[in-house]
């Protein structure tokens, strides 16, 4: 597992059921909008020894019609939304800044927790994204420095501190600590606002 360049990591890992779930879902998602995966799954994709029941993803804002297009495509492809069957209701949740969850039909775990990127911090997560190349497809994740800062200075649970440590240890030579500090300051500023 290594950086090929500043924006690309190649992982020749054996894919597990969670990876396949992610790859199948994003194949549909990226036909409709741009996305970036954040939070726990990022560290798991990069080797962390824990599971997760959901994958957090920011998507770029969509018009109602475009969201309905995405939703219909997901339904046709065997997914359901845990929050509601009504597209109007689901769209209103997204517009209000709430997350909606998609899983395979009749299942709840694992699920994708989908949110519009609305504030500056979340919109900026699309910048400096990393493309992770796996054996069966590519996955776009937030930058490692952003991941570390968010987990260490915003979420701060034991699990999140461990996730941050894992990424830092595995990619020691590639991590820009100045960037982590910049994100730390942004997070602190956002918290105070």
């Amino acid at each position: 597992m290594k950086f090929l360049d500043k924006k690309t990591i190649k992982v020749d890992r054996e894919l597990n059921e969670l990876d396949k779930f992610v790859l199948d879902f994003i194949k549909i998602l990226e036909k409709h909008t741009d996305y970036v995966i954040i939070s726990g799954y990022v560290s798991i994709l990069l080797g962390r020894t824990r599971g997760t029941e959901d994958i957090d993803v920011f998507i770029k804002g969509l018009s109602k019609n475009k969201f309905i297009g995405l939703y219909n495509n997901l339904k046709k492809s065997g997914y359901w939304c845990l929050n509601s069957e009504e597209s109007d209701e689901l769209y209103s949740y997204l517009i209000d800044g709430l997350a909606i969850r998609f899983a395979l039909k009749d299942e709840t775990i694992p699920n994708f927790e989908v949110k519009f990127a609305r504030n500056k911090l979340s919109k900026d997560s699309f910048n400096e994204r990393i493309n992770v190349i796996t054996k069966e497809g590519n996955i776009k994740i937030s930058s490692l420095e952003r991941q570390i800062a968010f987990k260490r200075y915003y979420l701060k649970s034991d699990k999140d501190l461990e996730d941050a440590k894992h990424i830092e240890e595995v990619f020691k030579k590639d991590i820009d600590h100045k960037k982590i500090n910049i994100f730390k300051d942004l997070i602190m500023k956002d918290e105070k606002a």
Binding site: M1, V11, D12, R13, E14, N16, E17, L18, F21, I44, G47, R48, T49, R50, G51, E53, D106, E107, T108, I109, P110
Partner: peptide, 23 residues
């Protein structure tokens, strides 16, 4: 990557299987 991921996957896959079994 193949060696470490095979071990990690035992954990991940068992969690997914468990979730699917106990719906």
């Amino acid at each position: 990557d193949e060696v470490w991921s095979r071990q990690q996957n035992i954990l991940i896959n068992s969690q997914i299987q468990n979730a699917r079994y106990f719906k």
